[in-house]
Design a protein around this nucleic acid. Structure first.
Length: 290
DNA sequence: TTTCGTCAAGCTGAT
DNA sequence: ATCAGCTTGACGAAA
């Protein structure tokens, strides 16, 4: 069982990943974006090395590691990171280290990735964004990317049908990495299992989202069903509410009551992503508490 | 060096 | 109508 955290490493501050504004790329040129990307990849390796030194073998890479990389005005500049020797070399170093350490590397495309949006332009850019994630994961030998279903617009059955249709039409290289997750407002775990049946996409179970939206008892039968959607090692998300258990806003740490989830999972071969404001510090504390 | 308005992007639900 | 929240505050111009 690997415990993981997402994106930000507080211990390495003030060093951090960099982003960039569109205007800056236009002012300073595409080479400046490339410079930021290379810096970020170098720092990613540093984060992974820090993780390994602290026995952490599961990590979510920020989608912003290559900021604005699929923006039309940036792609129009003609730079293809997939074919850039220096970028390939940097990615390759990460891949070699990742494989040597047997790490799990994930990504989580942002909230504006809506495959079943009613706006065709949103669907198109979402698909392009997923291709970027798949290319990146392929380059570093990453494991998966997680997406919410979204796009309800007051008619969930229709939204689910649209999602299934678009998901099934995705390029194979995207499908290889794509996983779907239950959320805290719209799609519960049972709906996710139904979508999984019709798309073949594995389901990531988020315990906190489940509590916010459904709040029934999580049975062994349910976990078995969820994990059977996977061919590889499944993954779940845990987090605690900030002000009360059902608070959708994430707490800094994992509440004592919620540690029971980890014990519940002991009998499975499963990785746990901790979504807490305290990041890697929350992970280290949780591991100590357990 | 610090402050603070702003940053590509969608959608939902609370206020 | 506005805005927090979500995978995540950081960028960068101006003081």
């Amino acid at each position: 069982m690997r415990l993981g955290y997402a994106c930000i490493n507080e211990s390495l501050k003030p060093k951090k990943f960099r982003s960039i504004r569109l205007k800056t790329i236009q002012t300073k040129g595409i080479d400046y974006l490339k410079y930021i990307v290379l810096e970020n990849l170098e720092f990613l390796l540093e984060v992974l090395e820090w993780n390994s030194a602290h026995d952490i073998y599961f990590y979510r890479i920020s989608s912003d590691i290559m900021p604005l990389i699929t923006h039309p005005e940036v792609t129009a500049l003609g730079w293809q990171w997939q074919k850039d020797k220096e970028v390939i070399d940097a990615l390759d170093k990460i891949r070699v280290f990742k494989l040597k350490e047997n790490m799990r590397l994930s990504m989580h495309p942002d909230q504006f990735t809506v495959l079943n949006s009613l706006r065709p332009d949103v669907v198109k850019s979402s698909m392009e964004y997923l291709v970027y994630h798949a290319d990146f994961l392929e380059a570093v030998s990453g494991d998966d990317m997680i997406l919410h279903v979204g796009g309800v617009y007051g008619d969930k059955p229709a939204a689910m049908m649209r999602f299934i249709h678009v998901a099934n039409s995705l390029p194979d290289k995207v499908k290889t990495y794509l996983r779907i997750e239950n959320d805290d407002k719209s799609y519960n775990i049972y709906e996710l299992l139904s979508i999984s049946e019709q798309t073949g996409l594995p389901v990531v179970f988020d315990f906190h989202h489940h509590r916010c939206l459904v709040d029934d008892h999580v049975t062994k039968d349910l976990l078995d069903k969820i994990f059977s959607t996977w061919t590889g090692i499944p993954k779940v998300h845990i987090s605690s509410g900030k002000r009360h258990p059902k608070d959708r806003s994430h707490s800094h740490y994992i509440d004592d009551d919620d540690k029971s989830w980890v014990y519940m999972l002991e009998q499975y071969d499963v990785d746990i992503m901790i979504e807490a404001k305290g990041k890697e510090k929350t992970l280290l504390k949780l591991r100590e508490d357990l």
